[in-house]
C-alpha cells in the first residue's frame, strides 16, 4: 500500500534548480534509501517532504489507510543531518517536550521517553544538559525525539555519515530494529549504507532521479557483463582505454589508477578483442577478471556521467 506519493516535485533557488520534477512513491513497511552524491538535491527533497521548505511546484501526498491526510506532520518523524537541540535542556526534557509537541499527553510522553531513551542507549546521560553531548549522543537523542510519537514515516538525513564506525554500527542497528514498525526514508551518499538495510533505492543526481526501484530488481536489471583489467601503471591503463573505447563490444569504460572496469555486450567477444588490443599496443595485463557489474559500478556510472 502506498504511504507517500511525490509527484513532479521541483525546487528552484534563485539561479539554481536543486530538484527537477522528481516523482516517486514509497510503500508502507519499506526501507528506502535516497542515494546520491553530495549536492544532488537529497537534503532539499527531504526538507520539502518534512514541510521545512516550500516546493516551487509539484505535489506531496501522504496516505493513511488509503486516505490522503491534510497535514503530514503528525505522521512524520524527522532527524536532520546535524540535529541541534536546546543546549540548556536535558536529554530527557527534550524528548518529553518533542513528544508533547507531537500531541502526546504528559504522562504518555514521560512513559515513552524512558522507553526510547533506553532503546537508543542514552538513559545514563538523560539528566545531563544536551550542551555537553557528543555527536553520536545527539544523533541517538535525535532518533528518540523523531520516534516518540510513533510516526508512520521516519525521515532521516544522512543519519550515519558523520559518525565513527561504532556510532554508525549502533545507529544502523537501531534502524534495523525500528523498521519492523515504521517505514523509513533515509538519504545517504554512501552506497554501502543503503545496501545494508534498504529494500528500495532512489538514486538521484543533479536534482533528477537516475534509477529507482527495489534493490534486488536494480541489481538484476542493471547487472551487465563486465571485465576488470589491471595493467602495469596508469599510463598503460589510459592507452588501453583509448584503444578499446570505441569498439562495438564496449559499453562503458571507467578507469581508476591502473585499473579499468569495462562494461561490455558479450564477454567472450570482448575478452578476445581486448587481449588483441593489449598485445598490439604492448600493454602488459597483470590481471583480467570477467564477471558482472555491481551496484557500485552503477552508482559510479551515474555519478560520473
Amino acid at each position: 500500500m502506498t504511504l507517500l506519493k511525490v509527484d513532479q516535485l521541483s525546487k528552484q533557488f534563485k539561479q539554481h534548480q536543486a530538484v527537477k520534477k522528481i516523482s516517486f512513491s514509497i510503500d508502507e513497511g519499506r526501507c528506502v534509501a535516497l542515494l546520491g552524491p553530495n549536492g544532488a538535491g537529497k537534503t532539499t527533497t527531504i526538507h520539502m517532504l518534512t514541510g521545512l521548505l516550500r516546493p516551487t511546484s509539484g505535489d506531496i501526498q501522504l496516505y493513511l489507510q488509503g486516505k490522503q491526510v491534510a497535514d503530514r506532520r503528525p505522521h512524520l518523524g524527522y532527524l536532520p543531518q546535524m540535529p541541534v537541540f536546546y543546549s540548556w535542556m536535558t536529554g530527557r526534557e527534550f524528548v518529553q517536550y518533542a513528544g508533547q509537541l507531537a500531541g502526546l499527553s504528559r504522562q504518555e510522553a514521560e512513559r515513552r521517553t524512558e522507553e526510547w531513551l533506553e532503546i537508543v542507549g542514552i538513559q545514563d546521560a538523560a539528566k545531563r544538559r544536551i550542551g555537553g553531548y557528543s555527536g553520536g549522543m545527539k544523533q541517538r537523542l535525535g532518533l528518540a525525539q523523531a520516534l516518540i510519537h510513533r510516526p508512520k514515516l521516519l525521515i532521516l538525513d544522512e543519519p550515519v555519515s558523520a559518525l565513527d564506525p561504532i556510532g554508525r554500527r549502533d545507529v544502523l542497528r537501531i534502524l534495523e530494529q525500528i523498521r519492523q514498525e515504521t517505514t523509513i526514508l533515509f538519504s545517504t551518499h554512501i552506497l554501502h549504507d543503503a545496501e545494508e538495510i534498504c529494500d528500495d533505492i532512489i538514486l538521484i543526481e543533479q536534482g533528477e532521479i537516475a534509477v529507482q526501484g527495489s534493490l534486488e530488481h536494480i541489481r538484476q536489471s542493471h547487472s551487465e557483463p563486465m571485465i576488470m583489467i589491471e595493467t602495469l601503471n596508469e599510463a598503460q591503463a589510459k592507452a588501453l582505454e583509448i584503444a578499446i573505447r570505441n569498439k562495438p563490444y564496449v559499453h562503458h569504460v571507467a578507469s581508476e589508477h591502473q585499473t579499468l572496469r569495462v562494461t561490455v555486450s558479450q564477454l567472450e567477444e570482448a575478452e578476445r578483442g581486448i587481449m588483441t588490443e593489449a598485445v598490439q599496443h604492448q600493454i602488459f595485463i597483470r590481471k583480467l577478471e570477467a564477471g558482472h557489474s555491481t551496484l557500485e559500478d552503477l552508482f559510479m556510472k551515474v555519478v560520473r556521467a
Binding site: 518534512t50 514541510g51 521545512l52 506532520r73 503528525p74 512524520l76 537541540f85 507531537a102
Partner: peptide
C-alpha cells in the same frame, strides 16, 4: 540560526 527550529516545526505545531 541554531537550527533547532527544524526539529520543532516538523512536529505538528
Amino acid at each position: 540560526q541554531s537550527g533547532v527550529t527544524s526539529l520543532i516545526f516538523t512536529k505538528p505545531v
